[in-house]
Amino acid sequence: MAKNEVRSLLSAVELRADGDGRTVSGYAIMFDKPSQDLGGFIEYIDKGALKDVNFDGVYLVYAHDMNQPLARVDAGTLKLKVDDKGLFFKATLPNTTVANDVLENIRVGNIKGMSFAFTTKADTWTFGKNGSPDIRHVTAIDEVFEVTITPLPAYQDTSIAISSRDASKPAYGKRERMRDELAIIRVRKEFM
């Protein structure tokens, strides 16, 4: 059962005037950097987490809206490269209303964030003590669906990660499991 998760981060989105000035680049995923508190836990994407990921079907979209496409790997308008820092992207945006608005908002500094939607293949948890947050290390990502340019680089839709963390705790009861399974169904409907 795939668990779609969405993460957003402040990232150096750059606007480059390559020829027609429609190229944007930056990092959609940064390795070994702590997330903000995601509701009781801090998350890290480990360096080897993207090792076996196939990026052939990845889209670049605006604000996680698949109806707002900006580029695609299989169209040749989106390039993705894993390096020591994370997942670097470079995209040439089309001459559409959405893309023109995104380019202008990047130019004036209104948009500085990146995000990504993914499923986890493997992770580890260290449970915090005395009120400190739990720590999650995503050690293997199964699939990256999209990378997103977003004006709101705050983490969102974290109920799935919370449910996987809580399921590992001994006091995880039937009521909590049902609550989390309903949250998973709601998120899955949103992304499917």
Rank of each mutant, 00 (worst) to 15 (best):
M1L: 11
K3W: 13
S8Q: 08
V13E: 01
A17N: 12
A17W: 03
D18T: 12
G19S: 10
T23W: 04
S25F: 07
G26P: 06
A28D: 02
A28N: 02
I29A: 07
D32R: 09
P34W: 02
S35M: 08
Q36A: 14
L38S: 02
G40D: 01
I42M: 00
I42C: 00
Y44Q: 02
I45H: 00
D46Q: 13
K47C: 13
K47I: 15
A49L: 06
V53T: 02
F55D: 00
D56I: 13
G57T: 11
V58K: 01
Y59E: 12
V61N: 09
Y62W: 11
H64F: 10
N67E: 12
N67M: 12
P69R: 04
R72L: 14
V73M: 04
A75E: 14
G76C: 08
V82E: 05
D83N: 15
K85L: 14
T92S: 07
P94K: 10
N95Y: 02
T96C: 09
T97M: 11
L103P: 00
N105Y: 05
N105P: 01
G109E: 03
N110K: 07
G113Q: 03
G113H: 03
M114H: 00
M114Y: 00
S115Y: 01
A117L: 12
K121V: 09
T124F: 02
W125Y: 10
W125K: 01
N130H: 10
N130D: 15
T139D: 06
A140I: 06
I141G: 10
D142V: 08
E143H: 14
V147G: 01
T148N: 14
T150R: 04
T150V: 14
L152P: 00
P153Q: 04
Y155H: 07
D157F: 14
I160Q: 04
I162K: 11
D166T: 07
A167F: 09
K169P: 01
R177A: 15
M178P: 00
R179W: 12
L182C: 07
L182G: 06
L182S: 03
I185T: 07
R188W: 14
K189G: 02
E190N: 08
M192R: 06
M192H: 06
